[in-house]
Amino acid sequence: MTAPPSPGGASGTKGSGGGGTPTGSLGCTFHGKQYPCYDANRGWFNSQDGCYWEAANPQPAAGDPAWQGHQPGDGTVYQVSCDMTGGGGFAFQWRATPPPGYGGAVSIAKLAQQAVSKMTLNGPDIGIAPKPGGKGLVGLPVWLWDNVSPTTYGPNTASASASGVTVTATGQVSQIAWDMGDGTTVTCDDAGVAYQPSFGARMPACGHVYTRTSAHQPGGAYPITATSTWVVNWQATTGQSGQISVTRQSRTSAVIGELQVLNNN
């Protein structure tokens, strides 16, 4: 570890501690003795060396000895305090990655959830042909798709931070399940393809063919529910990562009639 910089230097500024004890920062062990995993004045406890680590805030200026020959943005300079375990005082130490225990598992999980809540993850922006207000026919395909955007299909990214730790999450839809209202569910692994008149009556990869009219349905239409499964991968600056799955829904309907055959005889 390097000695503390001379008084008054930017690298001598003590970390703020993050503004409170995060949830889940209870007992950590070092040489058989319990210590709080987080201390508002010292940072996060490292059970491997028995010291508290907190990212220096602000980070030292370029060329400061605390960087140990590295440049700002290449790793992080931490304020390290070992006085709770007999080391005394504090020093500054550069690390390419956060030390063990930095951030606390429960706190990071909460930050991941906060990042997800910051995203606007919606159900599909439903595209359907025949379009709402029109009428499909028994035996002819109904085309289904999502009008792709970051909020309806992804990718969608957000971050949440606390106590010097940042979790960045990116969400993407993995599949859309279409409940067609006639007892059939169509599961599509992509957003589908928007219908074009040139496609004619061909069957789409994401679509459905009704075998009965919708006349017997309430309101004379089949209710359709589209359920998106969002897979959100998150990464913390502590090196930890994980995945969260959430679902979102949208609804529409389809009027299905019978083809009328004219007899000219």
Score class of each variant (00 low, 15 high):
residue 2 T to C: 06
residue 4 P to F: 00
residue 6 S to K: 10
residue 7 P to L: 10
residue 7 P to V: 01
residue 9 G to V: 09
residue 9 G to R: 11
residue 11 S to K: 03
residue 13 T to S: 07
residue 15 G to T: 11
residue 16 S to Y: 06
residue 16 S to D: 13
residue 17 G to D: 02
residue 18 G to S: 01
residue 19 G to S: 12
residue 20 G to C: 05
residue 20 G to W: 01
residue 20 G to F: 00
residue 21 T to V: 11
residue 21 T to Y: 05
residue 25 S to A: 15
residue 27 G to P: 07
residue 30 F to N: 04
residue 30 F to D: 05
residue 38 Y to G: 05
residue 41 N to A: 12
residue 42 R to P: 13
residue 44 W to A: 11
residue 46 N to S: 04
residue 48 Q to M: 10
residue 50 G to M: 10
residue 50 G to C: 03
residue 51 C to F: 06
residue 54 E to M: 07
residue 60 P to T: 06
residue 60 P to D: 00
residue 61 A to H: 11
residue 62 A to K: 08
residue 62 A to Y: 10
residue 64 D to T: 08
residue 66 A to P: 10
residue 70 H to T: 14
residue 70 H to I: 15
residue 75 G to E: 14
residue 79 Q to S: 10
residue 81 S to K: 02
residue 81 S to E: 15
residue 81 S to Y: 13
residue 83 D to Y: 10
residue 84 M to K: 06
residue 87 G to R: 03
residue 87 G to C: 15
residue 89 G to T: 09
residue 90 F to C: 08
residue 97 T to W: 00
residue 98 P to S: 14
residue 98 P to D: 11
residue 100 P to H: 08
residue 100 P to I: 05
residue 102 Y to L: 05
residue 103 G to C: 05
residue 104 G to E: 05
residue 105 A to S: 12
residue 109 A to T: 13
residue 110 K to P: 14
residue 112 A to K: 02
residue 113 Q to R: 04
residue 114 Q to A: 07
residue 116 V to G: 02
residue 117 S to D: 11
residue 119 M to P: 05
residue 119 M to R: 07
residue 120 T to D: 12
residue 120 T to F: 01
residue 121 L to C: 03
residue 122 N to H: 03
residue 126 I to D: 06
residue 126 I to T: 02
residue 130 P to G: 05
residue 132 P to T: 04
residue 132 P to D: 13
residue 135 K to T: 11
residue 135 K to Y: 08
residue 136 G to V: 11
residue 137 L to E: 13
residue 140 L to K: 07
residue 146 D to K: 09
residue 148 V to A: 05
residue 151 T to E: 10
residue 151 T to G: 01
residue 160 A to R: 07
residue 161 S to M: 12
residue 163 S to D: 14
residue 163 S to F: 00
residue 163 S to R: 14
residue 165 V to S: 03
residue 167 V to C: 01
residue 169 A to K: 00
residue 171 G to W: 07
residue 171 G to I: 08
residue 173 V to F: 07
residue 173 V to K: 01
residue 174 S to M: 07
residue 175 Q to W: 08
residue 175 Q to T: 15
residue 175 Q to E: 15
residue 175 Q to N: 15
residue 177 A to M: 02
residue 179 D to S: 07
residue 181 G to V: 14
residue 184 T to E: 07
residue 184 T to R: 08
residue 185 T to K: 08
residue 186 V to C: 00
residue 187 T to V: 12
residue 187 T to D: 09
residue 188 C to H: 00
residue 192 G to W: 02
residue 193 V to H: 06
residue 197 P to M: 12
residue 198 S to P: 14
residue 198 S to V: 14
residue 199 F to I: 11
residue 201 A to S: 15
residue 210 Y to W: 09
residue 214 S to K: 00
residue 215 A to I: 06
residue 217 Q to R: 07
residue 221 A to T: 13
residue 225 T to A: 08
residue 226 A to C: 04
residue 228 S to W: 04
residue 229 T to G: 02
residue 229 T to R: 01
residue 230 W to K: 06
residue 231 V to G: 01
residue 232 V to E: 08
residue 238 T to L: 03
residue 241 S to A: 14
residue 246 V to I: 13
residue 250 S to N: 06
residue 251 R to L: 07
residue 253 S to F: 02
residue 255 V to S: 05
residue 258 E to Y: 05
residue 262 L to D: 04
residue 262 L to A: 03
residue 264 N to E: 04
residue 264 N to I: 10
